[in-house]
Amino acid sequence: MTELVLSNVSRWYGNVVAVNDVSMTIRPGVTGLLGPNGAGKSTLIAMMSGFLEPSAGEVTLGGEAVWRHVAAYRQLGLVPEREVSFSYLTGRQFVQASAELHRLPDPRAATRHAVEEVDLLDAADRPISTYSKGMRQRVKLASALVHEPQVLLLDEPFNGVDPRQRLHLMELLTRMGEQGRTVLFSSHILEEVEHIARHVEVVVSGRHAASGDFGAIRRLMTDRPTHYTVRSSDDRALAAVLMRQPSVRSVALAAPGGTEEVQVEVTDMGEFARALPSLSRDAGITVRELVPTDESLESVFTYLVQS
């Protein structure tokens, strides 16, 4: 199994610390790397890909150090955030140059396959200088995929990609993760991460803030109020019962779309979850639906950044 392991990794530039003592393991599947601008995401990806030496700590792939390890580079594919600088080349030439650098046995066939994977075949023979920002993103991805790496690292891969192509790339990354490849990507569009990467790594101010399933991370935040929507056989009676519970901060009746519901804010999610079944049963009320309304990745990320 191909695992990318960061062990107490730091990177500094003079007196500026970009990444501070980060340890994490990136396993097969799709992982989202989250953090505000300047959090150290790009620096982390550069060290994971072997393009930047850690000032302290080590990055390993399959137990071998990545820095200055040529064999490891053959298993890695990198899509950097920066723009392609060889804009005078056609998309096909750019991808084929990567195939030839990797000394693939049939660079032309590998190039065609990679270009087709990112849905850029129709524009493959146009100069990159004529490409839109989204097309440039896709040609970078094709270049990273041409040697079929086991590990793919993408820095803001959806920047400038139109909705149709964004969906195509999301499906491609999901499929690669399902095939057992290790895929890590950073994105500032949190909804995209939530749709394709259940596992997240969060960095804030160069430090590792959280790791794991985003729902599990959310459940660890017991000091933050949690919001639920509850629908039952008697919403008004249920609201009255809940208002007397110590774990409930506020209760409101609402009727979005004409359907009545109870909106509850709780301070202790575990206590509320344990108490609700017995409370409703004792009151003769049937709970039909219980839905957390603030468990989106955006909510989790905002809380972590503010903390």
Rank of each mutant, 00 (worst) to 15 (best):
V66E: 09
N20H: 15
A72C: 14
T43M: 12
A283L: 08
T229N: 01
R175F: 00
V291C: 03
G212M: 13
G50E: 09
R11S: 00
G29K: 08
E261Y: 00
L34E: 11
A97M: 15
G270M: 02
H147T: 12
H69P: 00
Y228Q: 08
V251A: 06
V19L: 15
I196V: 15
R108C: 07
D234S: 06
G257Y: 02
R27G: 01
V200Q: 10
L290C: 06
S49N: 09
W12H: 14
S42T: 15
A273C: 05
P246Q: 14
T2D: 11
E100A: 09
V262K: 04
M48I: 05
L145N: 08
L173Q: 12
G50M: 05
L89E: 14
D119T: 02
A99G: 08
V17H: 04
R112L: 09
L220M: 07
H147E: 05
R288W: 06
T60V: 11
S42C: 10
D106K: 01
T226L: 12
H168D: 12
Y131F: 15
R74Q: 13
F301K: 00
E271T: 13
G284C: 11
D162E: 13
V202F: 13
L242H: 03
L167E: 06
N8E: 15
Q75D: 14
T286I: 07
V30Q: 12
R249P: 00
V79R: 00
G35Y: 09
A39F: 11
V95F: 04
L6I: 05
A273G: 01
M269S: 13
S280K: 03
V17T: 11
T226A: 15
L101V: 06
M24N: 07
P127A: 06
G258H: 04
A144M: 12
G177M: 05
G14D: 03
F272N: 08
R27E: 12
H199E: 10
R27Q: 10
H227G: 08
F158A: 13
G40F: 11
V183P: 11
R281D: 09
T130I: 02
G91L: 12
L242N: 03
K133P: 00
Q75W: 06
S42M: 09
I45T: 07
T25K: 11
G63L: 11
H113L: 11
D268W: 04
L220V: 01
Q179N: 06
L238V: 01
V151T: 14
G32C: 05
R274I: 01
S7P: 04
E81R: 05
G284P: 01
A240Y: 00
T130E: 15
N8V: 03
L190E: 14
D119Q: 10
T174V: 00
D235K: 00
M243A: 15
L253S: 03
R219Y: 01
R138Q: 07
L89W: 13
T60A: 12
A216Y: 02
S247G: 03
N15H: 13
R11L: 05
T259V: 10
A39I: 08
P107G: 04
L290N: 06
Q137E: 04
S87P: 02
V146Q: 04
G270I: 03
G206K: 14
R207H: 14
Q93F: 01
